[in-house]
Design a protein around this nucleic acid. Structure first.
Length: 467
RNA sequence: GGCGACGUGGCCAAGUGGUAAGGCAGAGGCCUGCAAAGCCUUUAUUCGCCGGUUCAAAUCCGGCCGUCGCCUCCA
């Protein structure tokens, strides 16, 4: 499998350190508000990557942190007169719910910053001991000049940081404006703070990810992923802290997901194109169409999220689900065909080849759609031999463990439906089409859509999709 | 100002040297009692524009135009 590595700016062969186990750290949300679709582009991509690694036979051990203490959470909690935990609880729960809604797999660990303070203090102490950090006015800063490799990820060695802006906007005293804070000394009376050898305070933002990743995954991880904005300063600083402390490579493979834009414009509240997942659900959009739209474009390309694309996604999903349903209700009694297995092998290989190439999901989806067309071409009305049914459905299920946008499952026929279908077919035989259409309309009102084939009549349930 | 990404049919989107995947939409046809589902044909002699390299370029190089991002604890 080949994967782009931000550190080397090249697509590289990916092999985990540990045979079949892949360790992944993904920067999670800051739980100060509901997450928006931009956040979820990254998270859904990370889910896709995780699922594909598992599809390829790897075992995945993944951490997604929850940043539950920072300027925003502190400020918002104070505004509402709530304790920090009390305030963030709501958004942590909402985030977990949203992830489920988008059919994301649970990861192995969801550590919270406020529950990892002790380990963070330890790391700061280590950095102080090793001379990579210094104390000033109750805060601790990382000394960038102590680490020659600083700036490799973001290419900072080749550029200057705009110093003027940083100096003015920073209320803390640092030796060098480019140094970053590891531990923030307490400034306000009622601001959340923890005891530490360097005085009361709270951890800097970058610290938590270094600490939590090493705590759960060890000192060297296979993959660290996040949004492109995190490359600098967040991930650059994580590398600095971690490698200065351990002397080992922190991350072997850096993966960053590009931002999305909405209706051709940067998502912003003032443009009115800023959406949380919840707002889209309220508008009636299908969560699976949202997921499909978010994952269907390559992760290193800017994604233009539009309402048109949501509707297209819903239809594309419908095509695949219709096919699954049609195959599952096949009435073709012909003997099993060996060429179906060959097709499955062919398209599985095509899917895998595409996904192996830096997770080229467009190529992967093309394999799925081409498979469907080829089967349909060969077997009109998707009426495949009954003996081939199982392997086709299994193949679709298999692809869906990665794509995870389809609700597959055979439609369960209840007696009433079957009775009406039989009655209608009798009417059709009698050429009493008025009666037949009447029954079809009656079923439609019950949410049942009929599809007549040569061999039998099959049905599907109408999906409530926003149009 | 510094760094970087992108610009492919009506829309979305693959393709990084050998002659344009896939989805959605449109047109025509087939199938059907009619539908639904589906199949077939068709829709880019052309890949922002202008030059250059090459037997050959959407793919490499240079310039221009446009969009977007990072440099501000924003995925």
């Amino acid at each position: 499998m080949r994967l782009y590595n931000t550190l080397t700016r090249k697509i590289e062969e990916f092999t985990p350190l540990n045979d079949k186990l892949v360790t992944i750290y993904t920067c999670g949300p800051t739980v100060y508000d509901y997450a928006h679709i931009g956040n979820f582009r990254t998270f859904c991509f990370e889910d896709l990557m995780r699922r594909y690694l598992k599809f390829r036979g790897y075992q995945v051990k993944q951490v997604m942190n929850l940043t539950d203490v920072d300027d925003k959470t502190i400020r918002k909690a104070a505004e509402q007169g709530l304790g920090l935990d009390e305030y963030t609880k709501k958004y942590i729960e909402a985030f977990m719910e949203d992830c489920k809604t988008l059919n994301m797999e649970s990861v192995e660990f969801y550590p919270r910053a406020t529950r990892t303070i002790e380990e963070m203090i330890e790391l700061v102490s280590t950095l102080l001991e090793k001379g990579h950090a210094y104390e000033k006015d109750g805060s601790v800063y990382f000394n960038i000049s102590s680490l020659p490799t600083y700036g490799r990820l973001s290419g900072l060695d080749r550029r200057e940081i705009r110093t003027g802006v940083s100096v003015d906007s920073d209320e803390y005293e640092k030796d060098d404006v480019r140094d970053f804070v590891l531990w923030k000394g307490k400034k306000e009376e009622n601001e959340p703070a923890w005891h530490s050898p360097f005085g009361e305070g709270r951890p800097g933002w970058h610290l938590e990810c270094s600490v939590m990743s090493m705590k759960y995954l060890g000192e060297t991880l296979d993959i660290h992923a996040g949004g492109e904005d995190l490359i600098f300063p967040h991930h650059e600083n994580e590398i600095a802290q971690s490698e200065a402390a351990t002397g080992k490579t922190f991350v072997r493979h850096w993966v960053h997901c590009k931002y999305l834009i909405v209706e051709g414009k940067k998502m912003s509240k003032s443009l009115g194109n800023f959406f949380t997942l919840r707002q889209l659900l309220e508008k009636g959009y299908d969560p699976m169409a949202i997921r499909y739209t978010l994952i269907a474009a390559h992760y290193r390309k800017q994604l233009n999220f539009t309402f048109d694309s949501l509707e297209n996604a819903a239809k594309a999903i419908g095509r695949v689900e219709s096919f699954y349903n049609a195959v599952s209700q096949t009435a073709n009694r012909n003997p099993r065909s060996g060429s179906v297995s060959e097709l499955i092998t062919k398209y599985r290989a095509q899917f895998t080849a595409a996904m192996d190439d830096d997770l080229n999901i467009s190529g992967g989806l093309a394999a799925l759609f081409e498979f469907i067309r080829e089967i349909n071409t060969k077997y009109p009305d998707s009426q495949v031999p009954e003996d081939n049914k199982t392997e086709i459905l299994a193949f679709l299920d298999e692809l869906n463990t990665v794509i995870a946008c389809f609700h597959f499952g055979e439609e369960l026929a209840d007696e009433e439906i079957m009775k009406l279908i039989d009655e209608r077919n009798q009417a059709r035989k009698d050429r009493n089409f008025a009666r037949a259409d009447e029954i079809r309309d009656q079923l439609k009102e019950m949410g049942i859509i009929l599809e007549d084939t040569r061999d039998a009549t099959r049905f599907k349930r109408l999906k409530q999709v926003k149009s």
